[in-house]
Design a protein around this nucleic acid. Structure first.
Lengths: 348, 348
DNA sequence: TTGAAAGCGGTACCAA
DNA sequence: TTGGTACCGCTTTCAA
């Protein structure tokens, strides 16, 4: 019987690992006793425990977490899902790392994926995480609305939004005050005497992108500066888009003397545009660039980049705490935390 | 009976989700029929299928992958583990992202974690991945030897090393020719007339670090340049370490005129040292810096960074293909792929 | 201290 | 086309 099982397994490509039953047989005890030993439960005589451990060793037995979780009371998988915009993006990966450190303390493993601003991908991956019964989900949403998550929340899925707030569903969130971030940037530039400050933004569908543009607009008004719609270019996805957009702005009749880039990749494009302009005409007047999202290398860039800095460590700590609260059954109303960004000023 | 189950669940904090049994009861069919519908298997009359789908909808049933995987033949979890040095590091996160894209095509989910050069963490996380029965494991090892993985390989765990080759175990690997990378860097600097080229390296325990240093040494000899041990500083972990080390080298009696930084974070430190020197003494002779590991922002740095570039996309494709082969039962001898790096030259 | 039997949520196999 | 039953690997419950 055991032999047929083994040979059947060997016919298949998959892994073949010893089960508790086999360990029990080898040790001459019941499967329950093996379970006790493996889980460090009391009530096993030392000699028996030793026999079991020897058998575990000889068969190289490794507990099957899936099977264990299935039967266990409390039913936790010890895994949480993290869905971010793009794992390779400096902001996302820094957040991911910070979340990893927090999760580790709670003994949680990370299932991570990139959404690439694709709502369909978001839904598919949320489904996937639910199917895997993650103990919690951290979501940087790609969709404009997340009404579909209502059912998951009602089913008790611990859920925290990061970077972008929920829409159409009541869930915890940890975000940054994007309007304030843009304001800091604009105030900084206005104080330096700039009167024509451009804005480069991502897709208007993205919440943070809209807020950052709005912050740019209102800060200009507050500073008594005119808001020229021609100086706001949005819908930019990549560095190259921003580079082209800024180059165009700078060659227009009334060019900006400064620019706020609404996201890290757009800052890169803006800086490339500045470099190109400088290379083509060494005496050209170069615009000041301020970027939303800080870079680890910001101080080494040329020109150095003044940037709106978000505390990803704090975001991760808060998100994890909220998730942990929900995981132990907290059903209180959703909490929304808004962190204040800082401006890291870097001059030549 | 069903009611008691429900209330028992409600006492606990965990999630409460409908099971197939409940869907079957509501639809008035057997659990097996629900299974057929959920898995899109043929042999269900349209009317019945509709009834089941309605019940699924009303109860918001979601399949439990863990339970499903447990019974299914072939026994796959559809997840792979990726253990890298540090998720937040540009090299690691770029590799992670590339692996994600490959894995997605195979419908595999990623379990990701950082090892932080900690061998104990590596072992713990490998254990964790095995317990979760991942279908494969991609490992950027932190340990000097991985003999312990022999048992996992024998059990049939598909395993691929990336960036660093296996030691003490026969497993597939995708690495980069680090000696060649350093040689490219040294040849480039020598061609520019440099005769005193320093090397900044990570811990000597790290395979890539040793190879890169060895490449530096042999390339110097090949170029007919003297190898001054005082110009090689290793054991550097962070940017700050490299900054201090290079600053010290530059203030010595016979300072280097160029430096090869053995890893991305060390390049950052080297560049900071150069910047500081320039700030303190505008007329000081500044060393040329070449870095191992390319940066997305390399062209925007000041001074611009010439860097040894590794093709993470190719690494990910190869690693995934190897893993996929092993997953379908390929037991042929381990394959070791060594990719050739390129030098991306960037001048002022 | 130990183990037999039931069952977690689902799939495989075969009979109806 | 449908369902009953065994069973995946493990934990729970309870009796011995």
């Amino acid at each position: 019987m055991e032999l047929t099982t083994v040979s059947a397994e060997l016919d298949r490509p998959g892994q073949r690992r010893a089960t508790m039953r086999e360990v029990a047989a080898l040790a001459g005890v019941s499967i329950k006793t093996v379970s006790r030993v493996v889980n460090d439960e009391p009530g096993v005589r030392e000699g028996v425990r030793q026999r079991v451990e020897d058998a575990v060793e000889r068969l190289h037995y490794r507990q099957h977490r899936g099977a264990s979780d299935l039967r266990r009371t409390g039913r936790r998988t010890g895994a949480i899902g993290i869905l971010v915009q793009d794992i390779a993006n400096e902001f996302s990966s820094a957040l991911l790392r910070a979340l990893e450190d927090e999760a580790r303390q709670l003994d949680l493993t990370l299932l991570a994926a990139s959404l690439d601003e694709d709502p369909a991908r978001e839904r598919a991956l949320v489904e996937e995480m639910v199917a895997r019964r993650v103990d919690g989900l951290v979501l940087m949403p790609a969709s404009p609305r997340q009404d579909y998550l209502g059912q998951e929340l009602r089913a008790g899925l611990p859920l925290v939004f990061v970077d972008r707030p929920p829409r159409g569903v009541e869930a915890d969130s940890v975000c940054v005050d994007n309007v304030a971030g843009s304001r800091l940037a604009v105030e900084h530039l206005a104080a330096k005497g700039h009167r024509r400050i451009a804005f480069l933004g991502d897709l208007d569908e993205i919440h943070t992108a809209r807020e950052r543009q709005e912050g740019w607009r209102t800060a200009l008004l507050a500073a008594g500066l005119p808001v020229d719609p021609a100086l706001s270019v949005t819908g930019l996805r990549e560095a190259r888009d921003a580079e082209v957009a800024l180059t165009r702005l700078l060659s227009a009749d009334a060019p900006p003397t400064a620019v706020l880039a609404g996201r890290n990749v757009l800052s890169v494009g803006a800086l490339r545009a500045v470099r190109r302009l400088r290379a083509e005409d060494p005496r050209a007047a170069l615009p000041d660039v301020v970027g939303f999202d800080d870079f680890e290398l910001a101080d080494l860039l040329d020109p150095p980049l003044t940037a709106v800095h978000q505390d990803v460590g704090a975001m991760a700590r808060l998100a994890t705490r909220m998730l942990a609260d929900r995981m132990v059954g907290d059903r209180s109303p959703a909490r929304h935390v808004v962190l204040q960004p800082l401006l890291h000023v870097r001059e030549r």
